[in-house]
Design a protein around this nucleic acid. Structure first.
Length: 188
DNA sequence: CTGAGGATCCTG
DNA sequence: AGGATCCTCAGC
């Protein structure tokens, strides 16, 4: 995908699909750099009750309404953070949850799960709202394509008991950073 | 003001 | 299967 901004301005389901294979780059305050590759993502849109923005804008979900490409980071279960990328048009409550990534450099980080990804990359609400498309950002997205031979599969979203007919979870089929039970379309 | 529940993960 | 752990929002 040539232009990340254009990709993310689409419907979150398109954005989630297109984010697979893209790089996520974390620059720590001390200057250390981590590069990883997104392998699993879910779409959320204000039109459906699975979405935090379903009941309109609140203090917490406000970043979902920002222009495409901003971070929406929330705290959950008293313990974990989850990273989302705002998408769609400005004023539209839509985002993509980053569920898992492959650790490239260093190659030993555990990024297989939304909570683990944030813990390993030290992503907290301190980064909430930041522009992931800006070059100087401490957390940044860079466009990249899938590798030859890779394909995208989909399933219902994880951990929701509503809207289960929406197949808005996307993942790179067979990828090892996707949890074993959920990495094939057969099991999803 | 209150309390129920949550886009998770780890342990037993 | 259950607990950690606390923030958010709906409801009163």
């Amino acid at each position: 995908m040539a232009n990340l901004g254009r990709l993310l301005s689409q419907h979150p389901a398109e954005a989630a699909k297109g984010l697979l294979g893209c790089k996520l780059i974390r620059m720590f305050p001390e200057g250390e750099l981590c590069v990883c590759r997104i392998v699993e993502a879910e779409a959320y849109h204000e039109s459906e009750p699975g979405c935090h923005a379903f009941r309109g804008r609140t203090m917490r979900n406000a970043p979902m309404f920002l222009k495409a490409g901003c971070a929406y980071i929330y705290f959950i279960y008293g313990m974990y953070y989850c990273l989302n990328v705002s998408c769609g048009q400005e004023g539209e409550g839509a985002a993509v949850l980053i569920r898992a990534a492959e650790s490239l450099a260093p190659s030993n980080l555990r990024l297989d799960g939304p909570g683990r990804l944030c813990r390993s990359l030290r992503i907290t609400t301190e980064l909430n709202g930041c522009d992931l498309l800006a070059k100087e950002s401490p957390l940044r997205l860079v466009s990249a394509s899938l590798k030859v031979g890779e394909s995208v599969a989909s399933s219902k979203r994880i951990g929701l008991s509503v809207e289960e007919k929406l197949l808005w979870r996307y993942f790179i089929e067979g990828n090892r950073a996707v949890s074993k039970a959920r990495r094939t379309s057969k099991n999803s």
